[in-house]
Amino acid sequence: MVVAFFLLPMARLIVTGASGPSGIAAYAAILVEPRYRATLINTVVLATATTAAALVVSTIAALFLQRHRFPGRSLLIALLTFPLALPGVVIGFLIILLAGRQGLIGDVTAFAFGEKWVFAYSMQGLFLGYLYFSIPRVILTVMAAVEKLDPALEEAARTLGAQPWAVHRDVILPALMPAFIASGAIAFATAMGAFGTAFTLATNVNVLPMLIYTEFTLSANIAMAAALSVGLGLVTWAALALARSAGGTVAAAG
């Protein structure tokens, strides 16, 4: 069952990638052909930026949420993790509502600066959308790691005279490193492969999944689409392998 519907098709995909007019060279074209290369670079830059931003904001929130107990804390956690299973299309739409032509940000900026900011369909819009679905994944992993931190570590650093910021720099953040690697790699892989969000925002920024889609449906360049998918699959697979070696468990759905 798994073999028939998954392994064989995947093999077929790999073979198809090399079956176009240029053969195996189709794989090389991903890196060589300027249009493909530009898209690849765009996608990697976007995914990297998303990952970095998600790590920073999520770590601040995760540390805060794990260290303090206050009324409404669990609600806050629930709110921060709820988009975990939201599909990318819907997230794209939410970004439109936030930064589109009738968006909230546009209204607010029009009111405040007399100028309407509309960036849903640009790189920034995509970035915001990717950030949206990355935050829950990263927060969950980092919070779990913070929870498992041995309080004695921090206390030991304190007894040795470390100030709070030194404790963070020398003890806490290094101890959280595996969680950063794991959740960062997951966020990166998810962002690389995100199709729904990009599709909805139908931006003028080309990202790899959109390129695959257009090659396949509009240009009917099936071989190239297959080659690009294989390339993309390899990148996400490698990122998730890295995540797993660092002990990550939250899957890259969506």
Binding site: F6, P9, S229, T236, W237, A252
Partner: peptide, 21 residues
């Protein structure tokens, strides 16, 4: 093998299925 689809974008899986079936 069973968990491999987690690591591969849906788009690629869909293409593979389309090509095969």
């Amino acid at each position: 093998i069973i968990t491999l689809p987690l690591a591969i974008p849906g788009l690629a899986i869909a293409l593979a299925l389309l090509l095969s079936y």
